[in-house]
Write a protein that binds this DNA or RNA. Structure first.
Length: 478
RNA sequence: GGCCCCUUGGUCAAGCGGUCAAGACAUCGCCCUUUCACGGCGGUAACACGAGUUCGAUUCUCGUAGGGGUCACCA
């Protein structure tokens, strides 16, 4: 059997969408799991939708997520060029050939005529009007400069079938298909044509793409057959949904790789999570490196039904990746987020990072977790309520002055010392030490969940600030 | 609407004729830490429905319902 070759063929229309990223990932995994090559091809035949810089974004997203392609526009290969707009002449040639083979024909119909074909349901199906044109008339009209397109000639009856590796046998009646445009009036091919020509010319053995092509694949097979080419193996992938009824789409703006990266998700975690949407390895592993995914990848683990994107689980996975980092690594990647916080320039960021490390799932939430450190503002006194430690606002009102006094007496204001000193006072104060820490923590932070224990935080903000905040809390308590 | 496809807990998902129907996230509870978190342990929770086939269906077939996809000079 020939070497497996898969491809990822995005359009440069904007950011790298997570759905697209998953398609790329599976194409990559399938190729690598089978010792094959993974190719990148840019499908930029629609000049209207072209977005400046999008091509570069495709390169960088793929690079960052580790999906290293063996051939592509920026790295070359033996089957180039890998950008469709640079292959325009190739399509024209093959289109002409397909016309000769009877698989396509020239069409001169006006937009108005096409629109008049719309039925009561708003659907439109081309009526093969120009198929009847004589060869002479076609040549004459082309020579006179009349604009034209080339349409695929689809049989009016019969059924086409093929075997999809995920969905099994797919049957579609030809009468459901339309004579789509293959070459547009500007000379550019449509996806319908270019994908077939390129996949064949580039030696693609396995076509991996979304289910939106499941029922139009017979059209492509018709062309492979007409040219006498071997049809590729098809692997269609289920959609990723935003919720039960809505597709995860660019329109919602929150489904781009870059968005998640800037929100503080690690690239490895994003790829890992996306891999799990629609695929489960035999051993049910969840946290996996790309290399492990290659080792475990197999098509029978891919599901047929759409799956809903769950950011909550992504958060968890991301947290796993974050915790696996060393403190130094964490500080490095957390730094931009720490610097965005209000505590930047006030407290030692490295110390804060250490406290934060085991308490952060997504880096983007760092500022909100520590902004309060810069300044204590009014908070809900109900935070003092804690049943386990038997604390309340009343208890706090009574305890805080004693705690303050104790703290004032501490010379070396560092965590261990503060902790030990306050612990010893529990008996004297007539409460559990847990109560002291709970009350102190709330009094100096005003937060229910904090990046560190009471004494760690006290040490971080310093003795003066700690005392100042205790006074402030006492004033709130009245 | 026509056609194609899909249907296991709130979510991701194991399962591929006989299971007390895995696991993960989330949720709830307990424990640990004489401080927050981390961590550990446990609970709640699912085969869309109806007919078949079969000794036996989550698993096979058909239908119903629900959902998705598609019907462009977009990919």
């Amino acid at each position: 059997m020939s070497k497996v070759r898969t491809r990822f063929a995005p359009s440069p229309t904007g950011f790298m969408h997570l759905g697209g990223l998953r398609t790329a990932l599976y194409a990559y995994l399938y190729a690598k799991a089978n010792g094959g090559d993974f190719i990148l091809r840019v499908e930029d035949t629609d000049q209207q939708r072209y977005v400046e810089g999008a091509v570069e974004l495709i390169y960088s997203s793929l690079l960052e997520s580790g999906l290293k392609y063996d051939e592509g526009p920026d790295i070359g290969g033996n089957y180039g060029p890998y950008i469709q707009s640079e292959r325009k002449h190739i399509y024209g040639e093959y289109a002409k050939k397909l016309v000769e083979l009877g698989g396509a024909y020239y069409c001169f119909c006006s937009k108005e005529r096409l629109e008049s074909l719309t039925d009561e349901n708003g659907n439109r199906k081309y009526d093969k009007h120009c198929l009847k044109l004589s060869k002479e008339e076609v040549e004459r009209r082309i020579a006179s400069g009349e604009p034209y397109v080339i349409r695929q000639n689809i049989p009016t009856e019969g059924t086409s079938s093929y075997e999809d590796l995920i969905y099994g046998r797919i049957d579609v009646d030809y009468k459901e298909l339309e004579d789509n445009v293959l070459i547009k009036s500007d000379g550019m091919p449509t996806y319908n044509f270019a994908n077939v020509i390129d996949d064949h010319l580039m030696g693609i053995t396995h076509v991996i793409r979304g289910t939106e092509y499941l029922s139009s694949t017979p059209k492509y097979n018709l062309m492979y057959d007409a040219f006498g080419w071997e049809r590729p193996v098809y692997i269609h992938l289920p959609t990723i949904m935003k919720d039960a009824t809505r597709k995860l789409s660019k329109r919602y703006g929150d489904a781009n790789f870059d968005d998640f990266v800037s929100k503080g998700y690690l690239k490895e975690a994003i790829i890992n999570y996306v891999a799990l949407l629609g695929w489960a390895p035999k051993d049910n592993s969840e946290k996996m490196t790309l290399t492990e995914m290659v080792e475990k990848f197999s098509l029978d683990g891919i599901s047929k039904s759409p799956s809903i994107f769950d950011e909550v689980k992504l958060r968890w996975l991301n947290g796993e990746y974050v915790k696996a980092l060393t403190d130094e690594e964490f500080y490095d990647i957390a730094r931009p987020f720490l610097e965005k916080s209000k505590v930047n320039g006030v407290f030692d960021l490295k110390k804060i990072a250490k406290l934060l490390h085991s308490r952060v799932d997504v880096l983007g939430e760092i500022p909100e977790k520590i902004d309060w450190l810069a300044e204590l503002t009014p908070y809900d006194l109900a935070l003092f309520d804690n049943k386990k430690n038997k604390t309340s606002a009343d208890v706090a009102r009574d305890l805080l002055p004693k705690i303050k006094e104790t703290i004032l007496a501490i010379d070396e204001f560092e965590n261990d010392k503060i902790f030990a000193t306050l612990s010893e006072k529990a008996g004297e104060f007539g409460v559990k030490s847990g109560a002291i820490f709970w009350v102190l923590r709330i009094a100096i932070t005003g937060q229910s969940v904090t990046p560190g224990g009471a004494t760690e935080l006290a040490a971080l903000i310093g003795k003066d600030e700690t005392v100042k905040r205790i006074d402030y809390s006492l004033s709130l308590l009245g």
